[in-house]
Amino acid sequence: MIYLIKILKKEFLIYSRKSSSFISPVVFFLISISLYPIGISNDPDILKNLAPGLIWITVLLSTLISFQNIFSEDYEDGSIELLLASRQNLSLIVLIKIFVNWIFSCLPIIILSVSSVFLLYFPQEGLKPLIISLLIGTPTICLFGALAGALSLGKNSITGPALMLPLSLPVLILGTQAINYSLNGINFSSNILLLTAILVFLLPIILFASVGALKLHFN
């Protein structure tokens, strides 16, 4: 337990020192959000309708910037070897890494997505489902990112994104749908429940698979 807290502290410290870990997704998000009105239309009605999807897609794409961070540095500098040599249970450690990565790469964007109210004319009453769906949906995406990152370690291939995006489709669909439902006055709680179910169901599976994938690099 002390061991895990030590790793948690260490991860936090490393991420907070590495400003690019949270600034890049934020900058990416802001750039994209301000490009949509310019590229599509500045008509409030059009933007309002597109906003739920645009926000979700942008969040999804911005995780592509950061998912490599979960393991690649640890792989390069030998930290993963030391973890393996420590004979500790890797799944909890990997879970901590995913959690910290989520805090630094997803949480700021989720908070920033509030800005869409004035940038994309997103209706205020949609903020609650937007924030809730992002809070529950993005951890699943970070899990997929961890798996993709673990599998494509050391190689800058397209394999990671090619694996990650199709996996994330259900989350994207359920997330945007929750917002659209709520804006149309339909109860969106079933979508939130489904997102939670997907997270709970996939968490052990993907975690297990990521640990397995990580170990494959040390055979």
């Binding site: 599998l151 050391g154 291939s157 090619a162 694996l163 199709p166 698979a209 397995g212 494959l216 055979n219």
Partner: peptide, 27 residues
Amino acid sequence: LAIIGMQSTFASRKSADTAVSIITLVG
């Protein structure tokens, strides 16, 4: 495509096969 792309990511044949199996099952 992800499965085909993954083939070249690992130096060891066995690791590549395992990785590809993991992706296939996740899929």
